[in-house]
């Protein structure tokens, strides 16, 4: 599918993400309690739940921005373990979009997009720039390529951040509350891009409160509370007949007004 040579360690027939019995503590605080989750290739999973429920912590464990204390995480069959090489391998295939965008402020939009492909994938500058322009067009922002992040609006920055992640041509994209730091009028432009990606078959795990987005693209919605997965179901079922009281309470709070 992509022109870039893979390391060939990844088994693309295995489940995209396989989390078994994952536990994570912050000191004595039990942040993740026996999480089990499997995401197949091409699947779109939306994770929601009240703040402090462990949603972000869980997806940050997948690319090891957080270390887990016990349990196993496999990405396309490659297990994350103490072997640092496995972390590098997984990070190459798993892109991430953050709440605060985290663009590199000292580089232009184009440099933000070409840095990692050139350094990590070792492709030429010309090729990296061509790829970057293709993805910047996809997020509808090619005319800003020579600007610095500080010169763009929040919505534009987040779209650049998505393009930057796409330039590594990852198999999986993780979204950590991608619209929570945006002004209301900019949320739609970011969600539109995410919907397009979903329709093109990208494997996505999105932590978000955008229930409209969940209804529209999710194959599965997961509800977390106090470090546990309380409920997981397809969107019609999740929004139509939530099983747990906690889910119902949460939904009434986010959809109530």
């Amino acid at each position: 599918m992509s022109a870039i040579a893979r390391t060939n360690v990844m088994d693309l027939t295995a489940p995209a993400i396989e989390i078994t019995d994952l536990n994570k503590y912050y000191g004595t605080f039990h942040a993740l309690r026996s999480i089990n989750l499997t995401v197949s290739k091409g699947e779109k999973v939306v994770v929601c739940g009240p703040s402090g429920s462990g949603k972000s912590t869980m997806i940050r464990c997948i690319n090891q921005l957080e270390e887990h204390d016990s349990g196993a995480i496999r990405v396309f069959g490659t297990q994350l373990d103490d072997n640092l090489g496995s972390i590098d391998e997984i990070r190459r295939e798993v892109g991430m979009v953050f709440q605060q965008f985290n663009l590199f402020p000292h580089m232009t939009v184009l440099e933000n997009c070409t840095l990692a492909p050139m350094l990590v994938r070792k492709i030429s500058r010309a090729e990296a720039e061509a790829t970057a322009m293709r993805y910047l067009e996809k997020v509808r922002i090619p005319d800003q390529a020579q600007k610095f992040p500080g010169q763009l609006s929040g919505g534009q920055q987040q779209r650049v951040a998505i393009a930057r992640a796409l330039c590594m041509q990852p198999e999986i994209l993780l979204f950590d509350e991608p619209t929570s730091a945006l002004d209301p009028e900019m949320i739609a432009e970011v969600l539109d891009v995410m919907v397009t990606l979903a329709q093109e078959g990208m494997t996505m795990v999105c932590v978000t409160h955008e229930m409209g987005f969940a209804r529209k693209v999710a194959d599965r919605v997961i509800f977390m509370d106090k470090g546990e997965i309380i409920e997981e179901a397809p969107p019609e079922e999740f929004f139509g007949q939530p099983k747990s009281d906690r889910t119902r309470l949460f939904l009434s709070q986010v959809l109530g007004h």
């Binding site: 690319n63 090891q64 921005l65 590098d88 990070r91 190459r92 798993v94 892109g95 991430m96 953050f98 605060q100 985290n102 663009l103 590199f104 402020p105 000292h106 840095l115 990692a116 350094l119 990590v120 951040a161 930057r164 992640a165 590594m168």
Partner: peptide, 30 residues
Amino acid sequence: IPKGQEEAAKALGLTYWHRTFRIVLPQAFR
């Protein structure tokens, strides 16, 4: 430097040396 800078660099798969010399040090010097 905001913590997110290094996290974004890690998430892109950049190594320690690339993160340090391309992302962290240029911003620290500024």
